[in-house]
Amino acid sequence: MNRPQRALQHGLATCLCCHQLVELPAGGRCQCPRCGARVHGRIDGSLMLTWALTITGALLLLPANILPVMTVIYLASGEPSTIISGVMQLYHAGLWGIALIVFVASIAVPVMKLVGLALLLVQIQFRLPLIPRQAMKLYRVVSGIGRWSLLDLFMISILVALVDMGAIAQVAAGPGSTAFATVVVVTMLAARSFDPRLIWDVYDQRQSVNTENDKKGVAGNG
């Protein structure tokens, strides 16, 4: 059977920075001759690092959603709002378009990212049967959307400066925003440290085991 040729089997690796094809020395890592980045067959400790960052992100998601992120004080009244209550306020004010944007950016995206990463990690860790095209799609979504979560924090930093009129109106940040900022950074780093080539490693390994079993089955019958 004509199986796809992969770089690591031939002792080659691609530089993740400049995409130069490099011959790996015995140690399995070297410096890219073209851009000077470190080159390794697979990202070092990718699984462990991504697991650690994903779990950290999931744990931090709790304080990020329970603690208030922002307080709008208008005419000496106002109470701290969390991310969810901020979305609800927008929805009740009839601004459902904006409410949807904020909901997607600050609730749906982080949760989707963490769940997506966990799914990929479980599939690779336990070498489950996977459909590589689907897994790649998931990986690309997960690594592409993360940055939009910072929307809420940018909005807070704009409002803090903009609504600053002492007793009449004031916006103050809350401790939840720190936790949320950390969630965003941690999940972005998690997506970075995940090596999609591991998906194909698992897939190829399963394929080769299957074909061997088929051969054995044929031999046994014959």
Partner: peptide
């Protein structure tokens, strides 16, 4: 002569 390997699936 391999020229390039895919950075996401390692295909030569």
């Amino acid at each position: 002569h391999w020229q390039r390997a895919c950075h996401e699936c390692d295909l030569l």
